[in-house]
Design a protein around this nucleic acid. Structure first.
Length: 537
RNA sequence: GCCCUCGUAGCUCAGGGGAUAGAGCAUUGGCCUCCGGAGCCAUGUGCGCAGGUUCGAAUCCUGCCGAGGGCGCCA
């Protein structure tokens, strides 16, 4: 790889000059300004001070040394600005990327093994089984599934998990609400009065007990949620039942262990977790004075169970659960787990906009926008791409009109269109009998056009982008990269014909390889986001 | 009051120590003999404010201002 060649030549020059440097100080980047070469290093700026050099003089010296014995593939070295060392490189390194992409194909391109098979459990959505999924669940759903994809791509052993809160006060209220609608009586205070409850109650069998209604409603809700998730291609490996831990005694076991670790105490008739000993603002109740568990207690037991099955836990929670992080981390520490074994990602709220007006997500019954409605309105691909296009750290404004539109406003169409155009080229080549062809037939050195090189530069970066988005749990970096690749494909399409009377056959062969590599890049990136790559739009 | 996230172009957002801060939309103006014009190209007085660290800050630190969320023996 060209970057390794450059890094080692820099490190050798530094060594010869007696400048000590750690490998992390030798950074390479691709300058935004093409006048600054293909690759650039700031190592002279980073090391000059401690080594007693003037940065620019150190850079000049290094450049001189490397220039006197240029590594293969490097055409020239120069110094610019305060002491950047800039490398001009022959395009072979980019042609190499093309071959890699085609050899690896969509199943391998961009994949690495930095995870070393470490088991990671990604828990997301985990909506209460008391109703359909709504718009508020969508961001966490798309995000969680995509980071699971990305972590898999970099070599983690990933489990997707949905925690089902199938017991407790909310479930009882839900069951009572179903029964109330069924019998035509008044829905209990703090119960569920939404229109869907009435609809569901009509399908519920007559004569059920509270427990019977609870069981029926829970199953109905889970089935509904599962179907909605499948509409956007999300399939969980496991649906973990909270109630199962009551039956198994896991909750009592956790309570006992907390007590043994001196992490809980009795006061005012309740059992408290000493979470303030572990960084939380205050202690938290585990068992209420009425003998019921709080929400926290089974959840702590649940996290222990996850730790018995995974080395690293990721929780995707909505912004309204932010205050809950400290107490869960405290509980895990009290039970002997390391802080870095649990990562909680908070997704900020999404504001839905339609026709320029905010769509209110009120809890008042009837006003809830179901996720199913959104998917039916704009389609699964637009749903996923739009939610994943920006960082979950920021509040998102999601324009339903824009997502539903089939014009340029819509980024998902822009990216998918790039793929469709490539397929269109390939179809044409196929009818002429020149595709598929063997890559060894093509002379890749013919690929010199700036448009061609731009595509290749993007493809070169893919693996790094995947690793970065895994490290930062940031799928939007993939989405942004896809848009850039699509831009370069559209530009290429416009300026460079692949198949045509004016194009020499050798160039056609080389460009057919190029568009196939670009196609592999598009499909690979879209796969990580769970978005399809259609042959035609 | 305390905690978390965020303030970047008219709008929606990237960029999270490097060189002249980017993209899409919108605006204005150009491009179709030929693989899909659902496209391409050009067009910008913008990093909330003030200090600090650094050779270098949109980026890191502190304070302030603003937006959202959280601070229950709710989930």
């Amino acid at each position: 790889m060209i970057t390794e060649t450059i890094t080692s030549s820099l490190s050798k020059a530094l060594e010869d000059l007696g400048v000590s440097s750690s490998p992390t100080q030798i950074n390479l980047e691709q300058p935004a300004n093409k006048d600054h070469g293909d690759w650039s290093s700031n190592v002279a700026l980073a090391t000059a001070k401690t080594a007693g050099w003037v940065p620019r003089e150190l850079a000049m010296k290094i450049a001189e040394m490397i220039n006197s014995d240029l590594p293969s593939g490097v055409e020239s070295v120069s110094v610019a600005g305060p002491g950047f060392i800039n490398f001009a490189v022959s395009p072979e390194w980019l042609h190499h990327v093309l071959q890699v992409a085609i050899e690896q194909g969509t199943t391998e391109f961009g994949k690495t093994d930095i995870g070393h098979g470490k088991r990671v459990n990604v828990e997301f959505v985990s909506a209460n089984p008391t109703g359909p999924l709504h718009a508020g669940h969508a961001r966490g759903a798309c995000y969680g599934d995509s980071i699971a994809n990305i972590l898999q791509a970099v070599g983690f052993d990933v489990q997707r998990e949905f925690y089902v809160n199938d017991r407790g006060l909310q479930m009882s209220l839900f069951a009572e609400s179903l029964l109330a609608f069924k019998s035509g009586s008044i829905v209990p205070e703090n119960g569920y009065g939404g229109a869907y409850v009435e609809e569901w109650s009509r399908e519920m069998p007559n004569g059920l007990s509270i427990q019977g209604a609870l069981d029926w409603g829970c199953k109905y809700a889970i089935d509904d949620q599962r179907q909605t998730l499948e509409m956007i291609g999300i399939v969980f490996d496991s649906w973990f039942s909270e109630r199962s831990m009551v039956d198994s005694g896991a909750i009592e076991k956790t309570m006992a262990d907390l007590e043994n670790n001196n992490a809980s105490y009795l006061e005012d008739g309740a059992t408290w977790l000493k979470s303030s000993d572990y960084g939380d603002d205050k202690d938290r109740v585990l068992v209420k004075s009425d003998g019921e568990f709080t929400y926290l207690t089974p959840d702590v037991a649940y996290h222990r169970d996850k730790f018995s099955r995974a080395d690293w836990l990721i929780n995707v929670w909505g912004a309204d659960h932010h205050g809950y992080i400290a107490r869960m981390e405290a509980a895990m520490e009290a039970l002997g787990h390391e802080a870095e074994q649990l990562t909680v990602t908070i997704t900020q709220l999404v504001k839905l906009v339609r026709s320029g007006e905010e769509v209110r997500l009120s809890k008042r019954h009837g006003d809830i926008i179901e996720l199913r409605e959104i998917v039916e309105e704009i389609g699964p691909d637009a749903t996923r791409f739009m939610y994943l296009l920006q960082s979950v750290d920021t509040k998102q404004t999601f324009d339903l009109d824009l997502a539903a539109s089939k014009v340029m406003d819509n980024p998902v169409f822009y990216v998918q269109m790039a793929h469709a155009r490539i397929r269109s080229i390939q179809n044409k080549a196929e009818t002429l009998g020149i595709w598929p062809s063997r890559s060894s037939d093509a002379d890749l050195s013919l690929l010199e056009h700036e448009r061609e090189l731009e595509i290749l530069r993007n493809l070169f970066n893919f693996s790094d982008i995947v690793q970065l988005s895994a490290r930062e749990l940031a799928p939007h970096k993939i989405a942004v990269w896809l848009r850039e690749l699509a831009t370069s494909v559209h530009g290429f399409y416009h300026d460079c014909y692949v198949v045509g009377e004016t194009v020499p056959p050798e160039l056609t062969s080389a460009r057919l390889q190029l568009v196939e590599a670009a196609r592999i890049g598009l499909v690979s990136g879209l796969d990580l986001l769970g978005v399809s790559a259609p042959d035609s739009m």
